[in-house]
Design a binder for these strands. Structure first.
Lengths: 206, 206
DNA sequence: GGATGTGAATGTCTTCACAGCT
DNA sequence: AGCTGTGAAGACATTCACATCC
C-alpha cells in the first residue's frame, strides 16, 4: 500500500466521526460535499482521500454511510481494541483517565504510573496508580499498545526511553516538550502551550 | 508581511522553548543544528524559518540565544498577556484551569462558564464558575482574547457561535467535534480521539 | 573553519476540471 | 442530472548546495 500522509489520516478520522453523526440522523447515503462541510475541507479533497483506498462511492448518489464507516474503521485499525498505559498521575492525567470517551472508542486504560508516593495506590476509574519503577517490568509481562505521557516537560524524554525499552510502539505525548523515539515508534504530541502561542501569533498578525 | 504557514509558526514556538532550555544551561549562542535537534527538524529548515523574519544569526557562530528568543517572542506576539475564557467546567476544564503553566506564559484565565447548576459558583484557582447564560453579556463588557471550548461535542458549535457573537477572535477547541467560525476568527483544535485514531492507523500499518 | 542565508531543485499536498457511471 | 474518480495543474513546503560572511 502507498504511504498515506498524516494529514490524510487525520481527515479520515474526521470523516468517520461525521459519518457517525449522519448515520445517527438516519442518512443512509452521504455525498463528498456533505462530508467536506463537516470535516472542514473540500469535496475534491474528500474524494481524493477516499480514492487512496479504492472506490466505494456510487456516482450520482454518494457513499453508503454504514459501508463507508465500516471501511474507514478498517483502514484506521479501529476494529480491534487498544490497551493504554498512562505515565504521570497529575490533574491532567486524572481528567483523561476519567474521560469515558476513550473506553467507548476501544481505547482501554490498563495502567497508570507515577513517582509521587501520595498518589501511588489511589484508584481512578477502576485503575490503581502504580509506582513508576515497576513500569518497564509490568509492561514486559503485560504489554500495552499505546503509552500516554502526562508528566512535566523534564521527565518526558526519560519516560519515552523507558516506554521504548518496554516495547511500546506508539506514544501520545502531552508533556510540553518534544520527545525523540526510534523510527519504528509512532509519536503524536499535543502541546497546549504551542497551540496557544499559535493563536497568539494569529491574533497579533491581522 | 508575507503570510507564514501554520507549520512554520508551530516550529517557531518549538524553537523558542528549545532556546529557553539552552539559555537555562548558560549557552549564550546556539546553532541552527542545535535548534533543529531539539525541535525535531533539520538545520536548513530552521534557517529558512528564521529567515522569513530577517537575518539575525552570525555566520560562523550561530544565533545569540537571548536575542533570538526575544525576537521570537516578538514575532509570536508573546510580549503581551492574553485573557482566556473557558466554556465547560468538566474534569478536563478543571485540569486545564488548575495548570500553572498557562499563567506563567502570560495566558490568564479570566472566566469559566458552565450550564450545570452544581458547578456554577465553585471557585477554581481563584476563578468562580459562572452561568453560561451570562457569557455573551459578560464578554461584551469585559472582553477576552481567547475562548477555550471544553464542552461535549454536541455543544461545541453553539458555544462557538456565542463566542463569535461576543467578539472573540481566537478559539481553542478541545471538544471532539470540528467547529466552524468566520475567517477572521482563528481556530485551533485539539482532538484526543483523532490523535489516538492516528496512532491506531500507524500501529496497524507497519 | 564554521555556520548562516538563500536561490534552485525537489517533493508533497491541494485544487481544478472533466470524463464516466448510475 | 448528479456525484464520483482521477489525471493534470497549481500551490505550497522541504531539502540541497553553495556563495557569503564572521
Amino acid at each position: 500500500m502507498r504511504r498515506i500522509a498524516d494529514s490524510t489520516v487525520r481527515r479520515l478520522s474526521l470523516y468517520l466521526s461525521a459519518l457517525e453523526a449522519f448515520e445517527a440522523q438516519g442518512m443512509t447515503t452521504v455525498s463528498s460535499a456533505a462530508l467536506a462541510t463537516r470535516g472542514g475541507t473540500t469535496s475534491a479533497q474528500v474524494r481524493k482521500d477516499l480514492s487512496f483506498f479504492g472506490s466505494f462511492g456510487k456516482r450520482g448518489l454518494g457513499y453508503a454511510s454504514a459501508e463507508l464507516a465500516a471501511r474507514l474503521r478498517d483502514i484506521l485499525g479501529l476494529k480491534r481494541a487498544y490497551r493504554l498505559a498512562f505515565v504521570g498521575a497529575g490533574k491532567m492525567a486524572s481528567a483523561l483517565v476519567n474521560y469515558r470517551g476513550f473506553d467507548q472508542r476501544g481505547f482501554h486504560i490498563q495502567a497508570v504510573y507515577d513517582t509521587d508516593p501520595s498518589v501511588i495506590g489511589q484508584t481512578w476509574n477502576g485503575v490503581t496508580v502504580r509506582n513508576a519503577k515497576q513500569m518497564v517490568g509490568d509492561l514486559k509481562g503485560n504489554p500495552v499498545d499505546i503509552g500516554v505521557i502526562v508528566t512535566p516537560a523534564d521527565a518526558a524524554q526519560g519516560v519515552t526511553d523507558q516506554l521504548v525499552q518496554a516495547g511500546v510502539k506508539a506514544i501520545l505525548n502531552f508533556a510540553p516538550a518534544p520527545i525523540m523515539a526510534p523510527p519504528d515508534v509512532s509519536v503524536k504530541s499535543v502541546n497546549l502551550t504551542l497551540e496557544l502561542e499559535a493563536l497568539s501569533y494569529a491574533l497579533s498578525n491581522r
